[in-house]
Amino acid sequence: MRAAAYIRNDDDGTRLVEDCVAAIRNGNNLIIFPEGTRTSGDGSITLKRGAANIAVRARRNVTPVLIRCQPVMLAKGVKWWRLPPRPSFFNIEVKEDIDIHPLVAEAGSEVLAARHLTEHLQTFLPRNAAAMQSFEDEIKQLVIEALQLEDITPADIDSDAPLFVEGLGLDSIDALELGVAIQKRYGIILSASSEENRRHFASIRALAGMIENNRKHEGEIK
């Protein structure tokens, strides 16, 4: 631990932040897992504000790095020796740096800047169940508007029901319309492969998942 220059966190939160800020000022880089624990089984992650507080108080830019692992291993509640059936594949994605200075200036205080930065970082991550539900409602609204489905509200559409033939009873022309609407709203260009599209358009849930995974994480800082 000491050799790796870990910073202790068994004292209290504030001392830890001060130690981290001091380490950065000494010219070190700091790697922080801002969720502060392992990802839970459903893949949802809620960030703590410590990492953002360090960046804000040290006035250093943040480089977000997303680590995905498929199939999941070493998850919470799973015995560590129970290895997945095939080797896990890690995908490490380095995002653009986030400039801390305008963020602090706009927030007006370090306390609020840390909150805003944490909310922004949270947008890079899979949503929790409640947020996903509201995102599915957003997609339902998009479908209703794009296809001008009259007399239908988001509540009438089952997230798991098929969109085509059965369920909503959409056809291939509707699929094209919907593709255009998705491209306009989320900047996602659907592939030409009909096989893949059939999977994406299987249900609202499938569609929401696809959009969630492909959308550009445009600046959502307030």
Binding site: D12, G13, T14, V17, K48, R49, G50, N53, E110, V111, A114
Partner: peptide, 8 residues
């Protein structure tokens, strides 16, 4: 509110 906020 977290421990950092409390000190602030």
């Amino acid at each position: 509110i977290d421990s950092i906020d409390a000190v602030d």
